[in-house]
Structures are given as C-alpha cells and as structure tokens.
Amino acid sequence: MTEPDPDADARALASTLRLRVLRLCLDQALTNREIAERLGKNPATILHHVRTLVDRGFLVAEPVRRGARGSREVPYRATGKSWRMPPFPGKQQVMVNAFLEELAEAPDEQVEMVRLGVRLSPAEHQELVQRIADFFSELADREPTPDGDPYSILFAMHLDAGRMERIAGE
C-alpha cells in the first residue's frame, strides 16, 4: 500500500501515456514488453512509466512468469485506483488526449458518439450529474464479463460559455 499523497498521485496520472498503460492493463496483466509493443513505444520508456504507476499503487506486479525464451517477465495489472481520483490541474486535457489516441485506433464503425446542447436548471443539472455518477460507479464496480468486448467511455459535460448571454459593457 502506498502512502497517501494526492500530489504524487496527480503527477503519476498527468501523462497521456500512463493513462493508456492503465487502460491496457485493466483486463489482463501485461509485461513491460507487451505494453511497449501495443503502444508502439520503446520498452525503456514504458518501464519508467510502469514503475511510476506501481510506486503510486495504480499498477500492481503479478507473479513473475517465464517468457518465450525463458526470460523473467513481470506482468502488471491496473488496480482501479485511478477511477476515483479527485480532479487535479490538467486532468481533463490528459484524459481527452488519451481518449483521442485510443479513438484514433478504433474502427469507425465501432465508434458511437453523441454531442448535445441542453439548458438545465441547477436542480436538473445536479440530478443529471448524480445519475451519471451513479451509472459510471455501477460500471466501475461491475465484474468484467469474461468473454465481453472491451469498450472505452469518456464523458464530459461543461458549461457552454459560448452560448451564455453576454453582460452589456463587456
């Protein structure tokens, strides 16, 4: 167990590449080499990021296994700790960048997207936020379907400043 340090946790997650590593290791334990191959990166670069994630408790090493040529390999699995991380400066941009990189790899016919503008009262806004939080918590707490397909979801809702009425004199 790592010592609580929200700043160190935030620094560990302030990397698009690290978020992608966590996503890859969500359903199955992968070695440093396997992660590097899937991301098209140098294994030494990935090892630095893996160690950071392990140090902060976002990844956990599983028992050592033997590779194809008898080499010693350490597989890593995501712990799920990142799901409940509080906001930190730049978090939104890192999450969007990771999602865009993953989206670029997805076949067009396998992508479903919706963009919607709405007007909500404060009570309606709060109700929507709570319903969405409950739904995502349910998904995060659910046991993975062993033969299910992996999906990635990004939800973002923001005040649409461009549609706000301007105050006279601004």
Rank of each mutant, 00 (worst) to 15 (best):
T2Q: 12
P6Y: 00
A10Y: 00
R11M: 02
L13P: 05
A14I: 00
S15H: 01
R18H: 04
L19Y: 00
V21E: 06
C25G: 06
D27M: 07
E37Y: 03
P43I: 12
L47S: 13
L47D: 15
H49P: 01
H49Y: 03
V50Y: 01
D55N: 08
G57I: 01
L59Y: 10
V64F: 15
R66C: 04
G67T: 02
A68V: 08
R72C: 10
Y76T: 09
R77K: 14
G80T: 05
K81C: 06
S82R: 10
P86Y: 03
P89K: 15
Q93S: 03
Q93N: 04
E102K: 00
L103H: 07
E105T: 09
D108I: 14
V114N: 12
V114M: 12
L116Y: 08
L116C: 12
V118G: 03
Q126N: 11
I132P: 07
A133S: 13
A133E: 11
E138I: 00
L139H: 07
D141K: 11
R142K: 11
P144K: 03
T145G: 05
T145V: 14
P146R: 05
Y151I: 07
Y151M: 04
Y151W: 08
Y151H: 13
S152M: 06
S152L: 10
M157L: 15
M157N: 02
G162D: 06
E165A: 15
G169M: 06
E170N: 02
